[in-house]
């Protein structure tokens, strides 16, 4: 096995894992505190990418576009919370799923109307577009380093917010007992709206970061959302720590599986059989992992202690 390839793929896996964490942390936050299943989280990811793409052309700079897009996705999150999520809080999960499924159709079609059917490529400023030479044979794209750094920074910021601020204290209190929190005089409605907006911004940020690599396109969120589900199922729904560990695990397993599984299979089967079976198995790998985890721990690796 080629060591430098292993290194690059590990970095790629880390990058995927961090993006997954950004999406999954919003999902798990909203579910853990609001007890609300939000499928339309996928659309917020997509909208983040599209808005950032448009703003990159308007403002002429990708980084400024990210800075301006973040509050915009937050506001979209607030609107979604007010008009779709809030009336559904008291309903069961089935209604959440159907309502937000409808919302996905609406938002995807709106994106289609506004930005057209084709994807939009997002240009990077020259200093981000280059590569970093690590050794004679090892180069990594600068932008991937930025994604990893931004992902880690967001994870760190979230950790700080949840564990060391008053808002975070309310969030944690809301997750363990919302009735008590509201009885103590906390405006639970505003808290919920803020949490929802925070989740939207995290999903939007993930979309913005991936856009320069894959370009912004309709339905781009619908693939990552399922993987994000796998992440929060494995991590334990409602657990931030679980989401972080599971996201990195799933990101690494998925990326490394896709690039090295055929080599691994060739050790014990004919190379022809390995080449036909490896893609099929690597496509299923993360789901098999999920099934294995659930077989032993039905509520994930780190189930929240309360609820």
């Amino acid at each position: 096995m080629d060591l430098s390839l292993l290194f690059i793929q590990t970095l790629n896996g880390l990058q995927l894992g961090l993006l997954l964490f950004l999406v999954a942390s919003g999902l798990t936050l909203v579910f853990g505190i609001l007890d609300f299943v939000n499928l339309a989280h996928a659309s917020l990811y997509m909208l983040g990418a599209f808005i950032c793409a448009s703003l990159t052309f308007v403002l002429g700079n990708f980084l400024w576009a990210v800075v301006v897009s973040l509050p915009i996705t937050g506001v979209i999150g607030l609107l979604v919370e007010r008009f779709v999520a809030r009336p559904l809080y008291s309903r069961d999960h089935l209604d959440h799923v159907l309502g937000t499924f409808g919302l996905i159709l609406v938002l995807d079609t709106l994106a289609h109307l506004i930005w057209g059917p084709a994807g939009i490529a997002v240009p990077l400023p020259p200093w981000l577009d280059g590569q970093i030479q690590l050794s004679e044979t090892l180069v990594i794209p600068t932008f991937r380093v930025l994604i990893i750094a931004a992902g880690l920074a967001a994870a760190g910021g979230l950790f700080w917010l949840v564990n060391y601020t008053r808002l975070g204290m309310l969030i944690r209190a809301g997750a363990s007992n919302r009735t008590m929190v509201s009885a103590l005089g906390v405006d639970i409605q505003t808290l919920f709206a803020l949490v929802f907006a925070l989740g939207a911004m995290l999903a939007g940020l993930a979309g913005m970061l991936i856009a320069p690599i894959t370009e912004a396109s309709i339905g781009m969120g619908n693939n990552i959302i399922i993987t994000a589900f796998v992440v929060i199922i494995v991590g334990g729904i409602g657990s931030m720590k679980g989401a972080f560990i599971a996201a990195l695990l799933i990101g690494l397993i998925d990326t490394l599986g896709r690039s090295f599984l055929d080599d691994l299979f060739k050790l014990f089967m004919s190379s022809e059989a390995a080449e036909t079976s490896a893609p099929a198995v690597s496509a299923m790998l993360i789901y098999i992992i999920m099934a294995l985890v659930l077989a032993f721990r039905p509520s994930g690796l780190f189930p929240p202690r309360t609820r």
Binding site: V37, H93, I226, F229, I232, I237, A291, S299
Partner: peptide
């Protein structure tokens, strides 16, 4: 909600 997501994932 685990059931919803896991059936979707499979």
């Amino acid at each position: 909600v685990y059931f919803i997501m896991i059936t979707m994932a499979f």
